[in-house]
Computed example of a mutant assay.
Amino acid sequence: MNALRTVSLLLATVTTGLMAGLFAGFAYAVLPGLSRVDDSSFVTSMRAINAAILNGWFALCFGGALVCTMAAVLLHLPADRRAPLPWLVAALVLYGLVLAVTAAVNVPLNDRLAAGAKLADPGELRAMFEGTWVRWNVVRAVLNTAALGCLGWALLIARSVAG
């Protein structure tokens, strides 16, 4: 059981870290770069990115962060293994907020951008999309990074209790 607890916590940390890196990379590199291109290039690029990201690797990390963090929480419920539990629960709540923002804001905006008629004015599509998507992506990056920090701290606590 110790090995399963350790593996679930490690996988939760890795997948959460990969998601935090993705959202942060968008916040400090991809979107600032795209802010420098014309409206048509922006819309075309974001449509292509939004289509390309829907793949197995993304799904593994996006869903894996939730599943592995939930598993780590459940496996640390026994009384003698609860030391990292507050940090695991905090990570789970923070990642749940990431999922909520994604579902409530970013995905609907992605869908609206994809559904925009090819002949629609790219400037209007960009104005509808960019500001809100960028702001909420930064929120996701911060929440996800905080979740990663909680999982890192949980790893340290679990190691000190086990060691």
Rank of each mutant, 00 (worst) to 15 (best):
N2Y: 12
R5I: 11
R5Q: 10
R5K: 08
V7R: 09
S8T: 15
S8L: 03
A12L: 06
L18F: 07
M19K: 13
L22H: 10
F26H: 12
A27K: 05
Y28G: 13
L31Y: 12
L31K: 02
G33Q: 05
L34F: 05
V37P: 10
D39Q: 09
S41T: 15
T44G: 10
R47L: 02
R47S: 01
A48L: 09
I49N: 07
N55Y: 05
W57A: 14
F58E: 10
A59P: 09
L60R: 03
F62H: 08
L74C: 09
L75T: 05
P78E: 09
R81M: 11
A83Y: 10
L85H: 02
P86L: 03
W87C: 15
L88Y: 07
Y95N: 05
L97H: 05
N106C: 14
N106H: 09
N106W: 07
P108Y: 12
P108H: 01
L109T: 15
L109V: 11
N110A: 01
D111H: 10
L113P: 11
L113Q: 12
G116A: 15
G116N: 15
A117Y: 10
L119H: 14
G123P: 07
L125C: 10
A127K: 07
G131F: 12
N137H: 03
V138K: 02
R140C: 04
A146V: 06
A146M: 04
A147K: 05
G149I: 07
L151M: 11
A158F: 00
S160N: 13
V161W: 09
V161E: 14
A162Y: 11
A162E: 12
